[in-house]
Write a protein that binds this DNA or RNA. Structure first.
Lengths: 130, 130
DNA sequence: ACAATAACGAACAGAATTGTTAGTGATCTA
DNA sequence: TAGATCACTAACAATTCTGTTCGTTATTGT
């Protein structure tokens, strides 16, 4: 049986992957959610927007997040063009600054609404009417 | 070694679960994303808002979605009070209608913005500036 | 010479999500 | 009486995601 792997080791021909692709084609909503719904990602985007734009600044804010996982998530955000890296001059060891692209910046008000939504309908706060 | 399972079989003491909880407590944004980021979920919410509010109507719109998976996702949306079920009178076999709660309805404009964001910054469309 | 720093990458293991197979109950239709 | 319909649930397998261990580069401080 032939199994095809992509570079990031996802199976292209699995039902799971096919369904994901189907949703991406059905509505951009689904690809958008895909970009921001990974563990830590929305929080990282938010942190950068607040000025925590260095690797170790993010680490300090999110102490449970390991260096390796942070590196991976940042790379994925970069792949989706949410952030770009900038090498800081005259730093040693070389410092990197993360900057939100216009695409990333456009996400902030949406994340903010989601946050408000969460606060409004917090457990026990909401009134279940139609 | 003691392993603790919750009723839905998630491990309460895994790093994964601990980190998830941490994020939920850090910002409501994360719990909000948790509610809508499951496979098919946002699409289901959107479909219901458009009037496809019956089990088989959703199935028809999303042909790759199996009955079993749909049932599970609907149940989770119900658990998070995004939808409620209503038994339709004088139907046989008993028909069920899904209705968005106020909580669920409040999500629609946000999903809509996310969709617009996706359309605007679609692959190859965006200009990568800062 | 050795530890420290910033920012990761690869490979693997454990956990969680998604999909699949089988089966439920009540009621109508052929 | 068998088959169809609606709307599911439980258990299991396949797939994907998250976290962990180990290692890297290049420079500076001790």
């Amino acid at each position: 049986m032939l199994v095809i792997y992509t570079t990031d080791m996802r199976k292209e021909a699995s039902t799971n992957a096919i369904n994901e692709k189907f949703l991406f084609q059905t509505c951009e909503l689904n690809s958008a959610l895909n970009v921001i719904s990974g563990r830590w990602k929305a929080q990282i985007i938010y942190s950068i927007s607040l000025g925590n734009n260095r690797f170790n600044l993010i680490r300090k804010e999110l102490p449970n997040l390991s260096e390796q996982v942070l590196g991976r998530q940042l790379k994925e955000l970069e792949t989706h063009a949410i952030i770009v890296k900038r090498i800081l001059p005259d730093t040693v060891p070389t410092g990197i600054e993360y900057i939100l692209t216009s695409k990333g910046l456009a996400l902030i008000p949406i994340l903010s609404s989601l946050c408000d939504w969460g606060k409004t309908y917090e457990e026990g706060k909401e009134i279940y009417h139609l």
